[in-house]
Amino acid sequence: MIRHKKIQIQLYDYLQNALSGDDKIIVEDHLRSCEICKRTVVGLKDVIEKFQCLTNPAEERSTEYWNNFALTVERRILNPQNKSISPNLIDQLYSLFVLNKKTTIALSTAMVLMLVIGLWYMNKEQLLKVPQQQASVQNQDTALVEKRIGNYFRRSKTLLVGLANLELEHGRSPDLNTEQSVSRELIDESRDLRQQPIDIRSAELMRDMENVLVTFSKIPPQTTQIEFDNIRRRIYRDNLLFKIRMAESAYDEESQSRQPIQNNRMP
Protein backbone atom coordinates (compact mmCIF):
# COMPACT_ATOMS: atom_id res chain seq x y z
CA MET A 1 0.00 0.00 0.00
CA ILE A 2 2.81 2.40 0.89
CA ARG A 3 4.41 1.36 -2.32
CA HIS A 4 1.25 2.07 -4.28
CA LYS A 5 1.08 5.63 -2.88
CA LYS A 6 4.72 6.26 -3.68
CA ILE A 7 4.22 4.99 -7.20
CA GLN A 8 1.14 7.13 -7.77
CA ILE A 9 3.22 10.24 -7.16
CA GLN A 10 5.76 9.05 -9.70
CA LEU A 11 3.32 8.29 -12.48
CA TYR A 12 3.41 11.77 -13.94
CA ASP A 13 7.21 11.70 -14.11
CA TYR A 14 7.04 8.22 -15.57
CA LEU A 15 4.90 9.45 -18.43
CA GLN A 16 7.15 12.44 -18.98
CA ASN A 17 10.15 10.14 -19.14
CA ALA A 18 11.67 11.92 -16.18
CA LEU A 19 12.45 8.90 -14.01
CA SER A 20 15.87 7.39 -13.47
CA GLY A 21 16.42 3.89 -14.79
CA ASP A 22 15.85 2.15 -11.43
CA ASP A 23 12.71 4.08 -10.59
CA LYS A 24 11.36 3.43 -14.04
CA ILE A 25 11.78 -0.31 -13.61
CA ILE A 26 10.07 -0.23 -10.21
CA VAL A 27 7.11 1.70 -11.64
CA GLU A 28 6.80 -0.65 -14.60
CA ASP A 29 6.86 -3.66 -12.27
CA HIS A 30 4.14 -2.13 -10.18
CA LEU A 31 2.01 -1.28 -13.19
CA ARG A 32 1.89 -4.96 -14.14
CA SER A 33 0.10 -5.81 -10.94
CA CYS A 34 -1.89 -2.70 -9.99
CA GLU A 35 -5.07 -1.91 -11.88
CA ILE A 36 -5.57 1.47 -10.19
CA CYS A 37 -2.19 2.78 -11.23
CA LYS A 38 -2.63 1.35 -14.70
CA ARG A 39 -5.87 3.27 -15.08
CA THR A 40 -4.26 6.42 -13.73
CA VAL A 41 -1.49 6.18 -16.30
CA VAL A 42 -3.98 5.78 -19.12
CA GLY A 43 -5.97 8.73 -17.83
CA LEU A 44 -2.97 11.03 -17.51
CA LYS A 45 -1.65 10.03 -20.90
CA ASP A 46 -5.01 10.53 -22.53
CA VAL A 47 -5.36 14.10 -21.35
CA ILE A 48 -1.72 15.06 -21.92
CA GLU A 49 -2.02 13.91 -25.53
CA LYS A 50 -5.11 16.02 -26.00
CA PHE A 51 -3.24 19.11 -24.88
CA GLN A 52 -1.48 19.03 -28.22
CA CYS A 53 -4.56 20.41 -29.91
CA LEU A 54 -4.25 23.69 -28.05
CA THR A 55 -0.58 24.43 -27.92
CA ASN A 56 -0.09 27.53 -30.03
CA PRO A 57 -2.85 30.13 -30.10
CA ALA A 58 -0.32 32.82 -31.03
CA GLU A 59 -0.06 31.27 -34.48
CA GLU A 60 -3.71 32.02 -35.09
CA ARG A 61 -2.76 35.67 -35.31
CA SER A 62 -1.43 37.05 -38.58
CA THR A 63 2.15 38.06 -39.31
CA GLU A 64 0.95 41.64 -39.57
CA TYR A 65 -0.49 41.37 -36.09
CA TRP A 66 2.87 40.32 -34.68
CA ASN A 67 4.79 42.87 -36.71
CA ASN A 68 2.67 45.47 -35.07
CA PHE A 69 2.55 44.09 -31.55
CA ALA A 70 5.57 45.88 -30.10
CA LEU A 71 4.41 49.16 -31.61
CA THR A 72 1.04 48.79 -29.89
CA VAL A 73 2.76 48.12 -26.57
CA GLU A 74 4.91 51.20 -27.04
CA ARG A 75 1.86 53.31 -27.78
CA ARG A 76 0.22 52.00 -24.68
CA ILE A 77 3.23 53.01 -22.63
CA LEU A 78 3.26 56.47 -24.14
CA ASN A 79 -0.47 56.88 -23.82
CA PRO A 80 -1.93 54.77 -21.01
CA GLN A 81 -5.50 55.72 -21.94
CA ASN A 82 -5.01 54.15 -25.32
CA LYS A 83 -6.27 50.74 -24.25
CA SER A 84 -8.28 48.67 -26.61
CA ILE A 85 -11.75 48.19 -25.23
CA SER A 86 -12.59 44.53 -25.17
CA PRO A 87 -16.05 43.49 -26.31
CA ASN A 88 -16.62 42.16 -22.84
CA LEU A 89 -16.17 45.60 -21.36
CA ILE A 90 -18.61 46.96 -23.87
CA ASP A 91 -21.10 44.30 -22.79
CA GLN A 92 -20.62 45.31 -19.20
CA LEU A 93 -21.16 48.97 -20.00
CA TYR A 94 -24.19 48.06 -22.01
CA SER A 95 -25.74 46.05 -19.20
CA LEU A 96 -25.01 48.96 -16.90
CA PHE A 97 -27.14 51.19 -19.05
CA VAL A 98 -29.87 48.67 -19.53
CA LEU A 99 -30.12 47.40 -16.01
CA ASN A 100 -29.52 50.38 -13.84
CA LYS A 101 -31.77 53.38 -14.19
CA LYS A 102 -30.02 55.37 -11.49
CA THR A 103 -26.68 54.95 -13.22
CA THR A 104 -28.18 55.96 -16.53
CA ILE A 105 -29.58 59.13 -15.00
CA ALA A 106 -26.30 59.88 -13.24
CA LEU A 107 -24.31 59.33 -16.42
CA SER A 108 -26.64 61.45 -18.53
CA THR A 109 -26.41 64.24 -15.97
CA ALA A 110 -22.63 63.96 -16.02
CA MET A 111 -22.59 64.13 -19.81
CA VAL A 112 -24.78 67.23 -19.88
CA LEU A 113 -22.54 68.84 -17.27
CA MET A 114 -19.45 68.01 -19.29
CA LEU A 115 -21.04 69.50 -22.37
CA VAL A 116 -21.83 72.72 -20.52
CA ILE A 117 -18.32 72.94 -19.09
CA GLY A 118 -16.91 72.18 -22.52
CA LEU A 119 -18.87 74.98 -24.15
CA TRP A 120 -17.83 77.40 -21.43
CA TYR A 121 -14.22 76.36 -21.86
CA MET A 122 -14.36 76.87 -25.63
CA ASN A 123 -15.62 80.42 -25.13
CA LYS A 124 -12.90 81.07 -22.65
CA GLU A 125 -10.33 79.71 -25.07
CA GLN A 126 -11.47 82.10 -27.75
CA LEU A 127 -11.07 85.02 -25.35
CA LEU A 128 -7.58 83.87 -24.48
CA LYS A 129 -6.58 83.11 -28.03
CA VAL A 130 -3.99 85.85 -28.47
CA PRO A 131 -1.72 85.12 -25.48
CA GLN A 132 -2.04 81.39 -26.12
CA GLN A 133 -0.81 81.80 -29.64
CA GLN A 134 2.36 83.36 -28.38
CA ALA A 135 2.92 80.54 -25.98
CA SER A 136 2.49 77.92 -28.63
CA VAL A 137 5.25 78.85 -31.03
CA GLN A 138 7.17 75.81 -29.88
CA ASN A 139 4.15 73.59 -30.36
CA GLN A 140 3.82 74.90 -33.86
CA ASP A 141 7.33 73.74 -34.64
CA THR A 142 6.51 70.28 -33.44
CA ALA A 143 3.24 70.35 -35.32
CA LEU A 144 5.07 71.35 -38.49
CA VAL A 145 7.52 68.46 -38.16
CA GLU A 146 4.59 66.13 -37.50
CA LYS A 147 2.92 67.35 -40.64
CA ARG A 148 6.07 66.85 -42.68
CA ILE A 149 6.46 63.31 -41.35
CA GLY A 150 2.85 62.57 -42.24
CA ASN A 151 3.46 63.96 -45.70
CA TYR A 152 6.64 61.99 -46.09
CA PHE A 153 4.90 58.72 -45.29
CA ARG A 154 2.00 59.52 -47.57
CA ARG A 155 4.28 60.25 -50.50
CA SER A 156 6.41 57.19 -49.76
CA LYS A 157 3.33 55.01 -49.77
CA THR A 158 2.22 56.39 -53.13
CA LEU A 159 5.66 55.77 -54.57
CA LEU A 160 5.85 52.19 -53.26
CA VAL A 161 2.38 51.36 -54.50
CA GLY A 162 3.34 52.82 -57.87
CA LEU A 163 6.51 50.74 -58.05
CA ALA A 164 4.68 47.60 -57.02
CA ASN A 165 2.06 48.09 -59.72
CA LEU A 166 4.34 49.28 -62.50
CA GLU A 167 3.69 47.15 -65.56
CA LEU A 168 6.83 46.40 -67.49
CA GLU A 169 6.78 45.94 -71.22
CA HIS A 170 8.64 42.80 -72.04
CA GLY A 171 12.23 43.32 -73.16
CA ARG A 172 12.09 47.08 -72.68
CA SER A 173 13.87 49.12 -70.06
CA PRO A 174 11.34 50.60 -67.69
CA ASP A 175 11.03 54.38 -67.73
CA LEU A 176 11.61 55.33 -64.14
CA ASN A 177 12.31 59.06 -64.47
CA THR A 178 9.39 60.33 -62.43
CA GLU A 179 9.75 57.70 -59.71
CA GLN A 180 13.46 58.38 -59.43
CA SER A 181 13.05 62.11 -59.03
CA VAL A 182 10.36 61.57 -56.35
CA SER A 183 12.80 59.22 -54.65
CA ARG A 184 15.50 61.86 -54.56
CA GLU A 185 13.10 64.35 -53.01
CA LEU A 186 12.08 61.80 -50.40
CA ILE A 187 15.70 61.03 -49.60
CA ASP A 188 16.42 64.71 -49.00
CA GLU A 189 13.32 65.10 -46.90
CA SER A 190 14.00 62.08 -44.70
CA ARG A 191 17.63 63.09 -44.21
CA ASP A 192 16.45 66.41 -42.94
CA LEU A 193 13.64 64.99 -40.84
CA ARG A 194 15.97 62.53 -39.17
CA GLN A 195 17.86 65.49 -37.74
CA GLN A 196 14.68 66.61 -35.98
CA PRO A 197 13.51 65.26 -32.64
CA ILE A 198 11.25 62.60 -34.15
CA ASP A 199 10.31 59.23 -32.68
CA ILE A 200 12.85 56.51 -33.16
CA ARG A 201 10.53 54.16 -34.99
CA SER A 202 9.79 56.67 -37.70
CA ALA A 203 13.48 57.53 -37.91
CA GLU A 204 14.38 53.87 -38.42
CA LEU A 205 11.73 53.40 -41.02
CA MET A 206 12.97 56.47 -42.87
CA ARG A 207 16.49 55.09 -42.79
CA ASP A 208 15.34 51.72 -44.19
CA MET A 209 13.35 53.50 -46.84
CA GLU A 210 16.33 55.72 -47.64
CA ASN A 211 18.58 52.71 -48.19
CA VAL A 212 16.22 51.28 -50.75
CA LEU A 213 15.55 54.61 -52.42
CA VAL A 214 19.24 55.43 -52.73
CA THR A 215 19.81 52.20 -54.64
CA PHE A 216 16.72 52.80 -56.69
CA SER A 217 17.56 56.37 -57.60
CA LYS A 218 20.96 55.24 -58.89
CA ILE A 219 19.59 52.75 -61.39
CA PRO A 220 20.78 53.92 -64.83
CA PRO A 221 18.14 54.90 -67.43
CA GLN A 222 18.75 51.87 -69.63
CA THR A 223 18.34 49.53 -66.77
CA THR A 224 17.49 45.90 -67.05
CA GLN A 225 14.29 44.54 -65.65
CA ILE A 226 16.31 42.35 -63.31
CA GLU A 227 17.72 45.33 -61.46
CA PHE A 228 14.31 46.84 -61.07
CA ASP A 229 12.85 43.55 -59.89
CA ASN A 230 15.60 43.33 -57.26
CA ILE A 231 14.43 46.63 -55.84
CA ARG A 232 10.86 45.45 -55.77
CA ARG A 233 11.88 42.25 -54.07
CA ARG A 234 13.73 44.24 -51.45
CA ILE A 235 10.69 46.42 -50.78
CA TYR A 236 8.64 43.29 -50.43
CA ARG A 237 11.17 41.48 -48.26
CA ASP A 238 11.57 44.39 -45.84
CA ASN A 239 7.80 44.66 -45.62
CA LEU A 240 8.26 48.37 -46.35
CA LEU A 241 4.86 49.11 -47.77
CA PHE A 242 3.13 47.65 -44.76
CA LYS A 243 5.34 49.54 -42.33
CA ILE A 244 4.88 52.79 -44.20
CA ARG A 245 1.12 52.32 -44.21
CA MET A 246 1.16 51.72 -40.48
CA ALA A 247 3.30 54.77 -39.88
CA GLU A 248 1.08 56.87 -42.08
CA SER A 249 -2.04 55.88 -40.21
CA ALA A 250 -0.25 56.38 -36.90
CA TYR A 251 0.62 59.93 -37.91
CA ASP A 252 -2.93 60.55 -38.99
CA GLU A 253 -4.16 59.39 -35.61
CA GLU A 254 -1.49 61.39 -33.84
CA SER A 255 -2.37 64.62 -35.51
CA GLN A 256 -6.03 64.01 -34.87
CA SER A 257 -5.59 63.25 -31.20
CA ARG A 258 -2.95 66.00 -30.98
CA GLN A 259 -0.74 63.81 -28.88
CA PRO A 260 2.40 63.43 -30.91
CA ILE A 261 5.19 61.10 -29.95
CA GLN A 262 7.91 63.64 -29.41
CA ASN A 263 10.97 61.99 -28.06
CA ASN A 264 13.40 59.37 -29.18
CA ARG A 265 13.17 57.86 -25.77
CA MET A 266 10.21 56.78 -23.83
CA PRO A 267 9.23 58.75 -20.71
Binding site: I9, L11, L44, D46, V47
Partner: peptide, 8 residues
Protein backbone atom coordinates in the same frame (compact mmCIF):
# COMPACT_ATOMS: atom_id res chain seq x y z
CA UNK B 1 -1.23 15.04 -11.33
CA UNK B 2 -4.47 16.09 -9.66
CA UNK B 3 -5.41 18.65 -12.26
CA UNK B 4 -4.90 16.31 -15.18
CA UNK B 5 -6.86 13.50 -13.57
CA UNK B 6 -9.67 15.89 -12.76
CA UNK B 7 -9.72 17.02 -16.35
CA UNK B 8 -9.92 13.45 -17.44
Amino acid sequence: HRGILKMR
